[in-house]
Amino acid sequence: MNQQQYPPQQPGAGGPQQPYGQPPFAPPPPKKAGAGKVIGLGCLGLVGLFVLVALIGAVAGGGSGSNDSKGADTTKASGSTLKGDKAADGSGGSHKKVDSEPKADKKVVFKVWGTAPAGALGPLNITYGSDSDNRDGAFKNGKFEATLPLDDDAMYFNVTAQLQGSGDIHCSVTADGKTKKAHAAGDYNICMAQLSPGLLGGWH
């Protein structure tokens, strides 16, 4: 029978000797860390992050709410103060003064009066107005009168009346309490009255 041969022992080596020709046993592989622990720690980290964000949001919301309430209180207080000031001054909205008489629009008055027989060219020729508004007038029953709105930008207001061969007439123009008058008699003479604005205001 074949006998299994063993290699000679080394001096100083202790312990059992493995059979000759067979490799030694490999050491067991190291244990891996449990995957469950890693997942658990990751979940705890996410939960902690959400809790932290929620706390920050709550703190920020509480601060702004308190500021808004303070602003509202300040507004209310100022409103009451304003009302109190109005009451002290006696200037309530129900006591507003209303002008009972509206201001009358200012007018310019033009007049011609006297005797003016019609001539070969017709009756008395009358024109009146301003530098930007000229009109014709009719002489009836020995007089003529017309009015126009007072334009402060006008350079002048005037009235002219030309006789037609004979007659004796007077004319006038009145604006803002000022009056200018003129006179004409005989032939084809012209009666002309004119008002102009002054450098310091008013008409003359």
Results as ranks from 00 to 15, higher is better:
Pro117His: 04
Gly45Tyr: 03
Leu46Ala: 14
Gly92Trp: 01
Thr75Ala: 01
Ala120Cys: 03
Ala118Trp: 01
Ile56Cys: 15
Gly84Val: 00
Gly61Phe: 05
Cys43Asn: 07
Phe50Thr: 08
Ser78Asn: 15
Phe110Ala: 08
Leu121Lys: 02
Asp89Lys: 01
Gly48Val: 02
Thr115Cys: 04
Trp113Thr: 10
Ala104Ser: 10
Phe50Pro: 03
Lys76Thr: 02
Gly48Tyr: 00
Gly129Ile: 14
Ile56Ser: 15
Trp113Ser: 15
Ile126Trp: 03
Thr81Pro: 06
Ala72Cys: 05
Gly71Ala: 13
Pro102His: 08
Lys111Ala: 14
Ala116Arg: 02
Gly48Pro: 02
Thr81Lys: 11
Gly57Ser: 03
Leu44Trp: 02
Ser69Asn: 12
Asp105Lys: 13
Val108Ala: 09
Gly45Met: 11
Leu44Gln: 04
Ala116Val: 02
Pro102Gln: 06
Gly48Met: 00
Ala58Ser: 13
Gly71Glu: 08
Ala54Ile: 08
Leu121Glu: 06
Thr127Ala: 14
Leu49Gly: 10
Gly42Arg: 11
Ser130His: 10
Leu124Gly: 04
Lys83Pro: 02
Val53Trp: 05
Ile126Lys: 06
Thr75Met: 01
Ala116Glu: 07
Gly62Ile: 07
Ser130Cys: 06
Ala60Gln: 10
Ser91Thr: 11
Gly84Pro: 00
Asn125Gln: 13
Ser91Asp: 11
Gly62His: 07
Thr127His: 09
Trp113Tyr: 15
Val112Asp: 13
Ala87Phe: 00
Val112His: 08
Leu44Ser: 09
Ser78Glu: 13
Val98Met: 06
Pro123Ser: 15
Ala120Phe: 02
Phe50Asn: 04
Asp89Phe: 00
Gly61Met: 08
Val53Cys: 09
Lys103Phe: 12
Asp73Ala: 05
Val47Trp: 02
Gly119His: 02
Lys70Ile: 01
Pro123Tyr: 07
Ala77Pro: 06
Gly42Glu: 09
Ser94Pro: 03
Asp99His: 05
Lys97Trp: 04
Gly62Trp: 04
Leu124Ser: 05
Val59Ile: 13
Lys86Trp: 03
Gly42Cys: 11
Ser64Gln: 10
Ser66Gly: 10
Ala58Asp: 08
Lys96Ala: 03
Gly48Phe: 00
Lys86Cys: 05
Gly84Gln: 01
Thr115Ala: 09
Ala58Met: 12
Val98Ala: 05
Lys86Pro: 00
Val98Arg: 08
Leu46Pro: 02
Ile56Asp: 15
Leu121Val: 00
His95Lys: 12
Ala60Thr: 14
Lys70Arg: 12
Val98Ile: 12
Ser94Thr: 12
Gly93Ser: 15
Leu52Ala: 15
Glu101Val: 14
Gly63Asp: 01
Thr74Asn: 15
Ala104Thr: 10
Leu44Tyr: 01
Leu121Arg: 01
Gly65Ile: 07
Gly62Phe: 05
Gly129Met: 15
Ser100Val: 12
Gly65Pro: 03
Gly92Met: 03
